[in-house]
Amino acid sequence: MSALLGDAARRLRSNPAALCAMFFILGMVVLTLLGPWLNPNGSDSLDWLHVASRPALQSAHWFGTDRLGRDLFARTLEGTRVSLAVGLVASAVSLIVGIGYGAAAGYIGGRTDHAMMRIIEILSGLPLIFFVIFLTVIFGRNEYLLFLSIGAVGWLTMARIVRGQTLSIRHREFIEAAVASGAGTARIICRHVIPNVIGPVVVYATLTVPQIIMLESFLSFLGLGIQEPHASLGTLIAEGAGEMEAAPWMLLVPGGFLAVLLLSLNVFGDGLRDALDAEER
C-alpha cells in the first residue's frame, strides 16, 4: 500500500493542473493561518473613519471595509478558515465513518447489509434543518454542533457510495482468491476491499468539500451556523449580496475566494483520481 501511494504521488506530481490546485489550497490554508499577523486590522475591530470604503492598496484596508467599517481582508481570511475547517473536518468524518460502514455492509451482504442500509435510509429521511434545530435546542448554539450535524448527514451518502463500489468488486476473482487463501472478513475488507474502492471515494470526498461549504453557508444564513461577529465565506457572501449595488467588493472578494477554493478542490480531486486509478487502465 505504501509503494502504491508512492506511485500515486509520483503521478500526481506530473500533473501540472492538479499540482497548481494543490498549491492554491495549501497557499490559502497558510494565508488564513498567517492572516492575523499580516494584517494590522482585526476581523472584528471597527474603523469608523472608513465605513464601506473601496479596496485600495495604499490605504490600511486592502480589500476595503464593510458597512460597519470592519476590514474585509481580515474577515475574508477568517471566513475562509472557518469554511475550510468545516468542509475538511466534516468530509474527513464522513469519509472515515462512511468507508467503514459502507465496505462492511457491502462485503458482508445478506441480512447484515439489509439492516445497515435500512438504518441509513431512516437517518437520511430526517430533514436536516429539523435535525439541526433539534440539536441547537438541546445543546445550545455552537460551532461544533455545525461540524456534528453536517458530518452526521455527509457520511450517509458516502456509505452508500462505498457500498455500491464494494458490491461491484465483491464478486471479482481476487476477492474470491483471498477467501480461498484463508483470509478472514476483517482482513479482506481492510486489505482488499477498501484499497480498491478508495479511488472513486476520495474523489467524491474532494467534491463534497465544496458541497459542505455551501451547506454551511446555508445553515449560517438561517441563523443556525456561524454567527456574528464570526464569519464564514457563506455569511460574507450573503452579506455582500445585499450590498451588491452600493459596494460590489463586499460580494466579489469573498465570492472570488470561494470560487478559487472550489475550483482548486475540484481540479485537485480530478488529479487525485487519475493518480490513484492508474492501475486500472
Binding site: 509503494a3 476473482e173 483471498a178 482488499h192 480498491n196 492501475e279
Partner: peptide
C-alpha cells in the same frame, strides 16, 4: 488452494505481486 481462470482478475490490482504472494504467509 485454487488457481483461477482469469490471471489478471484474480490478483488484487492494488497489491504488489510480492504482497499478493506473501498474503497466505501472513495469514
Amino acid at each position: 488452494q485454487i488457481v483461477f481462470q482469469d490471471p489478471l482478475a484474480s490478483l488484487d490490482p492494488r497489491m504488489t505481486i510480492g504482497e499478493t504472494i506473501a498474503e497466505p504467509l501472513r495469514i
